[in-house]
Amino acid sequence: CKPMSYEEKRQLSLDINKLPGEKLGRVVHIIQSREPSLKNSNPDEIEIDFETLKPSTLRELERYVTS
């Protein structure tokens, strides 16, 4: 899986911020299912740190927000 450039992460962040509330739950689910360290975090307060997410997680999020 190809790592994301800074610009791609920035765009992904903007795209996620534009999602309606009902789609954000899926974003949280994708992150929690792929990032063991965030599995028990509160979905309402999850802070997405794009620098610490795996490339595969970032690509999955990218696919979701652009679908």
Rank of each mutant, 00 (worst) to 15 (best):
C1Q: 10
C1G: 12
K2R: 12
P3N: 05
P3E: 14
M4C: 04
M4A: 00
M4L: 12
M4H: 02
M4Y: 01
Y6K: 15
Y6S: 14
Y6D: 15
E7P: 04
E7L: 05
E8D: 05
K9L: 11
R10S: 01
R10G: 02
R10K: 09
R10P: 02
Q11E: 11
Q11Y: 00
L12I: 05
L12F: 00
L12N: 00
L12T: 04
L12W: 02
L12R: 00
S13F: 04
S13V: 06
L14P: 00
L14I: 14
L14K: 12
D15S: 13
I16C: 02
I16L: 09
I16K: 02
N17I: 02
N17A: 09
N17R: 10
K18R: 12
K18W: 00
K18I: 00
L19G: 01
L19R: 01
L19K: 03
P20D: 14
P20I: 00
G21C: 09
G21I: 11
G21N: 12
E22V: 07
K23Q: 15
K23F: 15
L24H: 10
L24S: 06
L24K: 15
L24Y: 15
L24T: 06
G25C: 13
G25I: 09
R26D: 15
R26C: 03
R26F: 05
V27E: 01
V27K: 02
V28Y: 14
V28G: 07
V28E: 08
V28S: 13
V28L: 14
H29S: 13
H29V: 02
I30C: 06
I30R: 02
I30P: 09
I31H: 03
I31N: 02
I31L: 10
I31V: 11
I31P: 01
Q32M: 10
Q32H: 03
Q32G: 04
S33H: 04
S33C: 09
S33M: 11
S33R: 06
R34Y: 11
R34A: 10
E35V: 00
E35W: 01
E35Q: 02
P36G: 11
P36W: 01
S37Q: 10
S37C: 07
S37K: 14
L38N: 01
L38M: 11
K39G: 09
K39A: 15
K39R: 14
K39D: 06
N40G: 12
N40C: 10
N40M: 11
S41M: 15
S41P: 08
S41Y: 14
N42A: 11
P43C: 10
P43K: 06
D44L: 07
D44E: 14
D44N: 11
D44R: 12
E45T: 10
E45N: 10
E45I: 11
I46N: 14
E47I: 08
I48R: 06
I48K: 09
I48S: 06
D49A: 04
D49C: 09
D49Q: 02
F50C: 10
F50Y: 13
F50R: 05
E51M: 10
E51I: 06
E51G: 05
E51R: 02
E51N: 13
T52S: 12
T52M: 13
T52G: 11
T52D: 05
L53G: 03
L53E: 05
L53K: 06
L53T: 11
K54N: 09
K54F: 00
K54E: 10
P55M: 06
T57Y: 01
T57A: 01
T57V: 01
T57L: 01
T57C: 02
L58T: 08
L58E: 05
L58M: 08
L58R: 03
R59K: 01
R59D: 05
E60C: 09
E60Y: 08
E60W: 00
E60G: 07
L61Q: 09
L61E: 07
L61I: 15
L61M: 10
L61D: 08
L61C: 07
E62I: 01
E62R: 15
E62V: 04
R63H: 09
Y64H: 07
V65F: 03
V65I: 09
T66H: 15
S67P: 12
S67K: 09
S67N: 11
